[in-house]
Design a protein around this nucleic acid. Structure first.
Lengths: 157, 157
DNA sequence: CCAACTTGGATGACGTGTCAACTATTCCGT
DNA sequence: ACGGAATAGTTGACACGTCATCCAAGTTGG
């Protein structure tokens, strides 16, 4: 490998800014959820995907796939959520190995209560701070970076 | 609160893209470090700040301040790094409560070995994927969002 | 049919982060 | 000088993520 090319001034500004935006925005949104609701950000994501489907139930592996989570991560998360009654596990009759994750009434209540304030926070803290051009620019940047990273990874999906 | 205004199409694209860029880029960079070095991303950050100062030593609270980490978080991190010999704690003579975090030889070796590949990864996965205009746009977006979030928080810094 | 392989999922160990509680020192007003 | 408040730092409990491992149930080739 040739000698390392370090970041120039503009790049440093952008990189540090990006990192810091991530941390402060992520922290603010997750704190907002914890304060205004009974849900964490990971809880919220799981419940969003469950409410999105017909029967409010999904096979564990299918849920992991659409969320792009590792099976193990989802399994741990479901264990924690099950303990609090937000979801339930149910066995799959047609495949003895399989399991469903099922939305419970408490889970539905929780996300319905939490969603409006969360969306408001995203709008208030993010979209209200930037212009329509910024929105498009960011969408483009994201797509290009994602493509680059995934081309770099072993990416057999 | 009036009824919630949900995200429109362009906003959804930008938001999902942004979130996904965060996760894939963060995962790729932290995996790169773990594979090519003996350091994690948090290890790396701590060591960067220690190598940045004159004596390669900082008071715990000063280090926490410049990194914008909670004291508690830093204390846990230092405990783990101390266990691996990357840093050491030293008591402060002029203030009986205080403590220094000191870079060790092993810590210096570790970050010198890890830094080039990490910077290369940032360039390759991020800056090589976007244009100079994108860099400036992102810096601007970040600044505005950070300002907005910090205005929203209780922000007595 | 059955042994090898694959797949779905759970689990345990450990690193990381937050929050709340705690200890020990220093500071400060009277 | 002394008692209460602020400060420095650690600790423990718990949530979250990753990795490696394990197990049970399905699949498949001979």
């Amino acid at each position: 490998m040739a000698e390392t090319r370090w970041l120039d001034d503009a790049e440093q500004r952008a990189w540090r800014g990006y990192l810091r935006m991530n941390t402060v925005l992520g922290a603010a949104l997750s704190r907002q959820l914890q304060v205004d609701s009974t849900l964490s950000l990971p809880d919220f994501e799981v419940l969003v995907h469950l409410t999105d489907v017909e029967d409010e139930r999904l096979r564990v592996s299918e849920l992991a796939r659409v969320m792009r989570w590792e099976k193990s991560r989802l399994s741990h998360q479901v264990t924690r959520m099950e303990r609090r009654g937000l979801v339930a596990r149910e066995e799959c009759l047609s495949d003895g190995r399989g399991a469903f994750v099922v939305l419970t009434g408490a889970g539905r209540d929780a996300i319905e209560a939490a969603a409006p304030a969360h969306v408001d926070a995203v709008r208030r803290l993010f979209f209200d701070a930037i212009t329509a051009d910024d929105v498009d620019a960011l969408a483009g940047i994201s797509q290009r970076v994602i493509a680059r990273v995934e081309a770099n990874d072993v990416c057999p999906s």
